[in-house]
Design a protein around this nucleic acid. Structure first.
Length: 808
RNA sequence: GCCGAUGUGGCGGAAUUGGUAGACGCACUGGACUCAAAAUCCAGCGGGAAACCAUGUGGGUUCGAGUCCCACCAUCGGUACCA
C-alpha cells in the first residue's frame, strides 16, 4: 500500500471517529463505565518521543478493545505542565516557561491526534491552567484544614553560587550541575504534608490492589514499617533524649548513643572542650549528600560530644557521639548503640575504642564481629536467661511501667515536602498577616494566580518574592495589608489528584462533582512507567484517602488495576537521552509507514511490560504484512459468488478463526500485544491460503468481518476503512468484539505426544477431550513396538496434553 | 552491601503456568518469476553424521523442569548504615 492511500485511509478514519464522537463518554451508561488512564506526559521536549507512543498508542489499542467489548470507555488525556525543566529552559534561553510549555503542548496534542488515539479531549487537563491549579490549591486547603499541612525547617540542597535550591537530580557528585560549585545543605522553612499519618493505611491498602507485586513490594519498602520501642535516655543539660530501637531486648548492652550531626540538640549537648571538633564534623556532614552518607563504602566516622546520657533501665552513664550514619529524618534521629549485637555499632565501637558488652549468649569476644543471632539473655539483670523474644516483651512492659518509653512503631516514610522556591508551579494559597498570622486563602478567592511577569532568574529567594504586585495583598481575615506565600507547590501535588479531575474537567464550581466521581472511580486500568512506583503513586493514594476522610470521596484507592509499560531503550541498549545521542524519533517512521504500521510494530516487537532496545529491523515486515492484508481484502472483494459449502477446508478455517479470537482476546486483556499480533498474522495467512485454493464459501463473509474486528485495536484506521468497504456505515468500534464459538473449538482435533519414560515416541492426532482408556489403546500400538520386554509400571495421562508410559 | 527483576537460537521474542522448548517475525540459505535486478511467492533455518546435546552455571525434587527448591555468576533497576 502506498503512502498516499494510507494517508487517505487515516484521514477517512479520523473524520469518521470525529463524526461519530467515538471518544465521548456516555454518562447514561455508568454501569458499564471503564476508566482507562495513562500517566500524563510532561511537555518538556517539543515532541512526542518513542516512550509516549509506546504508552499512549498501545494503551489506546487496549481502550479500543475494551470499547468493542461493550464497555463505556473513558480515556482522557492531559499534560503535567508545571515543573523544573521549563523553568531551567527559561533561565537558559529567556523563553517564558508558559510560552514554551504551551507551545510544546500544542505540538504534542497535534501528534496525539495524529496517532489516532481515542482520547476524550473535551476533558483535557493542563495543570498550569488556572482552571486546573485553582483546584490543586483547593486540595491544599482541604489538607490544611484537616491539620495535614504544616511548616517546619528542613534541609535543602543549596548552591551558594547560583543562589538557588537544587533538586537532587541537579546535584552531580556533590556539585551543582550548572556551575560546579560545592552543594551545601541549607535549612529552610518549608511546607510539608503529613503523609505519615496515613502510613499504616497506605501499607495495608496495598494488599487488595491489582498491581504488579514488584510495585507493591517497592511501596512497602518505601513506607518501611518497623516495630520496636522508644527508650528515653536523659541528660542533665537537655533533659530527655528519646531514641527508637528495634532491639529493646539489648538495652543492657548499650555502651554509647549516637545522634545525627544535624540534630537540634547537638549544639546544646556539646561541651566546650569538644565544641570545635563537633562543629567541624557538623559542617563536613553538611557537605555530604544523603546518598553519600548512606553509602556502605563510606567509612563510619563520628565525634564525641563530651556529654553523657543516662540509661533509664540500668542507670549507667554512656557517652553521646554524633555520626553521619545516623539520619535526623528517621526515627528520632538518635540511636542507642549495642556494639556486641549490631554490625554497624560494632564497627564504630572498634574504631573509637568504645566498650562492648555482650547481652546475648553467642557473642564471641575474639570473633571480630557482632552477634546478631538468637540466644538467651546474659548480663541483663531481670532478663537473664530469657529468649530474645521474651526479653523484648518484658523490657517493653518495663519501659512503659516506668514511664521511660514503650512499644513504638516507626515508618521510614517521611512527610511530603511540597515547598519549591521556584516560579513555575502552583502558588501555595497562604497569606501572612501581622495580626492574624498564617491565613489560608478562602476558596472563593482561588485561584491565587501565578503572575506572568516575573523575574524567574535565581538569586537566593523564590522568584515570586520579587513580584510586589503578587506579594502584597490583603489579609482575607482582617483586611489589612498582608504578604503572600512565595513558594510554589511540588508538581507531584498537581498529579496527585488529576484522576479525580479528568471525568469532570470542565466543572467550574468545584474540583469535581463527588456524586459523579464516586461512580467514575476508581480508575479501572492505570498505565505508566515503573519509575513512579513510589512517589507519584503513593501521593495519589494519600490524597485520595484524605479527600475520602474529608467526605468528598467514597472509595479508598484511586487505581484499582495498574500496569507498568517497559522502557524502550536506545539501539545501544542504554536509556535514551539527548546527551547520549541515542534518541529515536517516531516522526520519520510515522511519515514513512503511517501510524497503524508503527503502532503494530511497537505491539509486536517488544514485550510490553519489559520493553527493550529499539531496533527498526522488523518494521518493514509489518508494512509488508499489511500489504498482504490489503491484497487479501482486494481478492475477497473481487469474489462475485459465494458457494454454500461447508467441508473440511471451511471447518479448518472456522477453527483457525475461533482459536484466534480466543488468543487475541487473551493477549489484549493481559497486555501481551506481541502474541496477539502473531496470532493475527497466522490467521491472515490461513485466510490467504484458503482463498488461493479457489474456494469461496459463504462462511468467508463472516470470517472477513471477524478478522477486521480483531485487527481493529492493532490497526484502527485500516480496520475502519475495510469495515466500510465490507458495507457497514457505523464505526467498527461501535460493533461487538467477536465471540468464540465454543462448539468449533471443542470439537477440534489436537495433537498429543506419546512418551515412554518422558521421551516422545510419537504424536497422535485425536479429538479434544479424548479419554484415558481410548488414548491408551491408541498409544499401545506404538508403545508395544518399543517395549523390548520391559513392563509398564505406570501410565501418566494429562487430559488433552500428554500420555506418558513409565516402564522398567 | 541490601532488596527486586531479568538471563531461552545470529537477533526481537513465544511457551496454554510442571507436559512436543524455540510460536510469530527479522536476518540468512535455496528455489520459482525475470534478460537482469528489485518486489512478490514457495521451501529450509538451535547444535550434531548419529545416538543424542541444548533455556546463564552447578546441584536437587519429579514419570516429566525454561517454569518449582538450593547455591553461584552476570546484567539491569531501586536504595535505605532504618537503629
Amino acid at each position: 500500500m502506498n503512502t498516499m492511500k494510507m494517508k487517505k485511509i487515516e484521514k477517512f478514519a479520523k473524520e469518521k471517529w470525529e463524526d461519530e464522537k467515538l471518544s465521548a463518554f456516555d454518562r447514561s451508561r455508568m454501569d458499564e463505565k471503564f476508566y482507562v488512564m495513562d500517566m500524563f506526559s510532561y511537555p518538556s521536549g517539543a515532541k512526542l518521543h518513542l516512550g509516549h507512543w509506546f504508552n499512549f498508542g498501545l494503551v489506546d489499542s487496549y481502550a479500543r478493545f475494551k470499547k468493542m467489548q461493550g464497555y463505556n470507555v473513558f480515556q482522557p488525556m492531559g499534560f503535567d505542565a508545571f515543573g523544573l525543566p521549563a523553568e531551567n529552559y527559561a533561565i537558559k534561553t529567556g523563553t517564558h516557561p508558559k510560552d514554551s510549555t504551551m507551545k510544546n503542548i500544542e505540538i504534542m496534542r497535534g501528534q496525539l491526534k495524529e496517532m489516532g488515539g481515542m482520547f476524550d479531549w473535551s476533558n483535557e487537563v493542563v495543570t498550569c491552567d488556572p482552571e486546573y491549579y485553582r483546584w490543586t490549591q483547593w486540595v491544599f486547603t482541604v489538607l490544611y484544614k484537616r491539620g495535614l499541612a504544616y511548616k517546619k525547617a528542613a534541609p535543602a540542597n543549596w548552591c551558594p553560587s547560583c543562589k538557588t535550591v537544587l533538586a537532587r537530580e541537579q546535584v552531580k557528585q556533590g556539585k551543582c550541575e550548572r556551575c560546579g560549585s560545592e552543594v551545601h545543605i541549607k535549612k529552610m522553612n518549608q511546607w510539608f504534608l503529613k503523609i505519615t499519618d496515613y502510613a499504616e493505611e497506605l501499607l495495608t491498602g496495598l494488599d487488595d490492589l491489582d498491581w504488579p507485586e514488584k510495585t507493591k513490594a517497592m511501596q512497602r519498602n518505601w513506607i518501611g514499617k518497623s516495630e520496636g520501642a522508644s527508650v528515653v535516655f536523659t541528660n542533665e543539660r537537655v533533659g530527655n533524649l528519646e531514641i527508637f530501637t528495634t532491639r529493646p531486648d539489648t538495652i543492657f548492652g548499650v555502651t554509647y548513643i549516637v545522634m545525627a550531626p544535624e540534630h537540634d540538640l547537638v549544639t546544646r549537648l556539646v561541651t566546650k572542650e569538644y565544641a570545635e571538633e563537633v562543629d567541624n564534623y557538623v559542617r563536613r556532614t553538611e557537605m555530604l549528600t544523603e546518598i553519600e552518607r548512606q553509602s556502605t563504602t563510606h567509612e563510619k566516622t563520628g565525634v564525641f560530644t563530651g556529654s553523657y546520657a543516662k540509661n533509664p533501665v540500668t542507670g549507667k552513664m554512656v557517652p553521646i557521639w554524633i555520626s553521619d550514619y545516623v539520619l535526623e529524618s528517621y526515627g528520632t534521629g538518635i540511636v542507642m548503640a549495642v556494639p556486641a549485637h549490631d554490625d554497624r555499632d560494632y564497627e564504630f565501637a572498634r574504631k573509637y575504642n568504645l566498650e562492648v558488652v555482650p547481652v546475648i549468649d553467642g557473642f564471641n569476644p575474639d570473633g571480630h564481629c557482632a552477634y546478631t543471632g538468637d540466644g538467651n539473655m546474659i548480663n541483663s539483670d531481670f532478663l537473664n536467661g530469657k529468649s530474645v523474644e521474651e526479653a523484648k516483651t518484658l523490657i517493653v512492659r518495663y519501659l512503659a511501667e516506668h514511664n521511660v518509653g514503650g512499644k513504638k512503631v516507626t515508618y521510614r516514610l517521611r512527610d511530603w515536602l511540597i515547598s519549591r522556591q521556584r516560579y513555575w508551579g502552583a502558588p501555595i494559597p497562604i497569606v501572612y498577616c501581622d495580626d492574624c498570622g498564617e491565613v489560608l486563602v478562602p476558596d472563593e478567592q482561588l485561584p491565587v494566580l501565578l503572575p506572568y511577569d516575573v523575574d524567574f532568574r535565581p538569586d537566593g529567594e523564590s522568584p515570586l518574592a520579587r513580584n510586589e504586585k503578587f506579594v502584597n495583598t490583603i489579609c482575607p481575615c482582617c483586611g489589612k495589608p498582608a504578604k503572600r506565600e512565595v513558594d510554589t507547590m511540588d508538581t507531584f501535588m498537581c498529579s496527585s489528584w488529576y484522576m479525580l479531575r479528568y471525568p469532570d474537567a470542565r466543572n467550574d464550581k468545584e474540583a469535581f462533582d463527588p456524586d459523579f466521581i464516586n461512580q467514575m472511580l476508581p480508575v479501572d486500568k492505570y498505565v505508566g512507567g515503573a519509575e513512579h512506583s513510589c512517589m507519584h503513586l503513593i501521593y495519589a493514594r494519600f490524597v485520595t484517602k484524605v479527600l475520602r476522610d474529608a467526605g468528598y470521596l467514597k472509595f479508598d484507592e484511586p487505581f484499582k488495576s495498574l500496569v507498568h509499560q517497559g522502557t524502550i531503550l536506545g539501539p545501544d541498549g542504554q536509556k535514551m537521552s539527548k546527551s547520549k545521542g541515542n534518541t529515536v524519533s517516531p516522526d520519520e517512521y510515522i511519515e514513512k509507514y503511517g501510524s497503524d504500521v508503527f503502532r503494530t510494530y511497537l505491539m509486536f516487537g517488544f514485550n510490553y511490560i519489559e520493553g527493550g532496545p529499539w531496533s527498526d529491523s522488523g518494521i518493514e515486515a509489518i508494512k509488508k504484512y499489511y500489504d498482504r492484508v490489503d491484497k487479501t481484502f482486494d481478492t475477497y472483494f473481487s469474489i462475485k459468488d459465494f458457494a454454500d459449502v461447508c467441508e473440511q477446508p471451511e471447518m479448518d478455517l472456522l477453527l483457525a478463526v475461533n482459536s484466534t479470537i480466543e488468543k487475541v482476546t487473551a493477549g489484549m486483556e493481559t497486555f501481551q500485544f506481541n502474541t496477539s499480533v502473531a496470532r493475527m498474522m497466522e490467521l491472515f495467512s490461513s485466510i490467504r491460503n484458503y482463498i488461493d485454493t479457489g474456494r469461496n464459501s459463504k462462511i468467508l463473509i463472516g470470517v472477513m468481518e471477524t478478522i477486521t474486528k480483531l485487527m481493529a485495536p492493532e490497526a484502527p484506521h485500516l480496520a475502519e476503512y475495510y469495515w466500510e468497504k465490507l458495507g457497514y456505515t457505523k464505526s467498527i468500534f461501535k460493533t461487538e468484539w467477536p465471540k468464540v464459538d465454543k462448539e468449533v473449538i471443542e470439537h477440534a482435533n489436537i495433537k498429543i505426544p506419546v512418551q515412554i519414560n518422558s521421551k516422545n515416541i510419537t504424536i497422535l492426532t485425536v479429538s479434544k477431550g479424548v479419554g484415558k482408556d481410548e488414548l491408551t489403546e491408541m498409544a499401545m500400538l506404538h508403545v508395544n513396538a518399543k517395549l523390548n520386554g520391559r513392563k509398564i509400571k505406570k501410565v501418566i495421562f494429562v487430559p488433552d496434553r500428554i500420555i506418558n508410559f513409565v516402564v522398567k
